[in-house]
Design a protein around this nucleic acid. Structure first.
Lengths: 177, 177
DNA sequence: CACAAGTTTCAATAATTATTGAAACTTGTA
DNA sequence: TACAAGTTTCAATAATTATTGAAACTTGTG
């Protein structure tokens, strides 16, 4: 008999851990703290709501870290607080609809970064100067291009956020498939 | 006479510095090193090609840092080497077309992150398990949703990269304005 | 070949960013 | 009001990430 070439055969617990790790690494790549991404991932794959205590245990992080991270995820709109009558302890559930999750992330990042950037660009682009000066012309041309890109991105992102599921898929499929 | 309420009246040099700072901060927010973003910004607003020496001076960074950063920007496709006959020194110019710049950034990040993520997701989503287990079902449902989102994003980004300027604006204006 | 003018590498270090953990705070209950 | 069961805060510290700078390397020229 040939020795069977057994595949690693992950357990569910291992697969969940790998997913949480993956989400953490991806978060890091995009300027989001590892813990934030990991708590999000943990709640995404948890069918039931988890308490701060549960999160601390499963990710082996401190109480302070868990508390702050959970608050931030609520700010993003990515998780919800679930209160149980007669219990003081707070539980948390993730928003599971990934289109909704995408919208939350777009909304938060647009507010924090794109809007701020547009304001600064507008201010810098208004700088008067001598059109005969090559440095001035290069500065202006680049700023105008970036402003245009920012405006277009803004509109695109705003539409994506407002889009209903059906609208989104309909438009998207027509355009890109 | 009323005291004139003079506006700060930036000089070009100050405005350039502010733009370089802004680009650096934005880079940081999106997981790109500050120096990389700043060298890119400097070259974007420089009408002429700059040498490593010029970059070191203007951003007050070390030779090693400048050298590594410039190599990385070339990898991204965001700047080009410009060789001058009879000179050993290397000069660098930025790609100035912002649609092209966007494409380079999408290409690089897609390759580095999205493609890798899709592979891992596929592997994890293949995990067999008991459909009666709530944990297994939640894991699977989340992974399937993320896979779908990843696939759609991939297609969208691929299209954006291939898009000609006119195609892009045409489609975009029809959809979103 | 020896040198000059440049570029690259990478171990040491600096700067930044994330995390801990204990004290302060909050809130419902007896 | 005192206490219990939880949450939040934040200064200290740990972990990570970026940067320096000097030595090694490359390459064209006399």
């Amino acid at each position: 008999m040939q020795p069977t070439d057994n595949k690693p055969a992950l357990t569910l617990a291992e697969a969940r851990a790998q997913f949480i790790h993956l989400w953490g690494v991806s978060g890091t790549n995009w300027g989001v703290s590892k813990t934030l991404a990991q708590v999000h991932a943990l709640l995404l794959v948890s069918p039931a709501a988890l308490s701060t205590e549960d999160i601390m245990e499963q990710l082996t992080i401190s109480r302070g870290n868990a508390s702050m991270t959970v608050r931030e995820l609520i700010d993003w709109g990515l998780i919800y607080k679930e209160l149980r009558p007669g219990e003081r302890r707070e539980y948390f559930v993730a928003e599971k609809d990934m289109l909704q999750v995408t919208r939350c992330i777009i909304r938060a990042r647009k507010r924090r970064e794109l809007d701020q950037m547009k304001r600064t660009l507008d201010q810098l682009a208004a700088l008067p100067g001598d059109p005969a000066d090559a440095e001035y012309r290069a500065f202006h041309a680049t700023l105008a291009d970036i402003q245009q890109l920012a405006t277009v991105s803004d509109k695109l992102l705003t539409r994506l956020m407002q889009a209903e599921k059906s609208w989104f898929w309909d438009k998207f499929l027509k355009l890109f498939m």
